[in-house]
């Protein structure tokens, strides 16, 4: 049943393309959902995938689908996931440009989006929490020792605070911070 993974890839990424509204990281909660339900995508690779998607050119959603598809089933997988992700966009946009002029100015559309925006922010926050759990908190170690000092990786927490403050103060491209953090990771042996 090797082809099953392609059917599932297409179905899951089609769904992500249809329901991920707002661009950027909006695809991320869907990837965590997929990783939780199937064994061909591991949640452990998702933080690395975000880093790669943010540091390479191209739309982040497409980058993430390509990466996840490749992890699941090689080159054919990356093609399947990416085509599936963009298919709903193409269909929806063609319908809109055919039938609905001034779609985004309709009050009902504006009202729906006023409600979707905070929900999407909450979904991305939940996906961010998953990344926190594996990179800054060390919940597995805490479960073993029951010692509060083993709940957080201190070097990781400090690095997080430094990066976050620098990002807010200085701005600049994410790739700079990702590269810097990689060097710090090697030097500190995180």
């Amino acid at each position: 049943m090797e082809w099953m993974v392609f059917v599932l890839l297409f179905y899951e990424f089609f769904k992500a393309g249809l329901f991920a509204v707002g661009g950027g990281l909006a695809t991320l909660p869907f990837l965590y959902d997929i990783a939780a339900r199937y064994d061909w995508l591991s949640a452990a690779v998702l933080p690395d995938m975000i880093a790669v998607s943010e540091s390479t050119p191209g739309p982040i959603g497409v980058n993430m689908a390509t990466y996840a598809g490749f992890n699941a089933a090689g080159v054919a997988g990356s093609l399947t996931a990416t085509v599936a992700l963009v298919t709903p966009s193409v269909l929806v946009i063609i319908c809109i440009s055919k039938f609905l002029a001034r779609f985004n100015e309709k009050p009902v559309v504006q009202s729906v989006f006023a409600s979707l925006r905070p929900a999407v922010a909450g979904l991305i926050a939940a996906a961010g929490w998953q990344v926190f759990r594996v990179s800054i908190f060390t919940l597995e170690r805490f479960a073993l020792t029951r010692d509060l000092t083993s709940l957080v990786s201190l070097p990781a927490l400090l690095l997080f605070i430094v990066i976050f403050v620098l990002m807010r103060k200085l701005g600049g491209h994410p790739i700079l911070y990702i590269a810097g953090a990689a060097v710090v990771g090697i030097v500190l042996g995180l």
């Binding site: 990344v131 800054i136 976050f164 990002m167 990702i178 953090a181």
Partner: peptide, 19 residues
């Protein structure tokens, strides 16, 4: 592996910034 441990921390900051 160490590099990616550092990168994951940067990703936390990126996601928090986006939120």
């Amino acid at each position: 592996q160490h590099a990616f441990a550092g990168i994951r921390v940067a990703v936390c900051a990126l996601v928090l910034g986006a939120v």
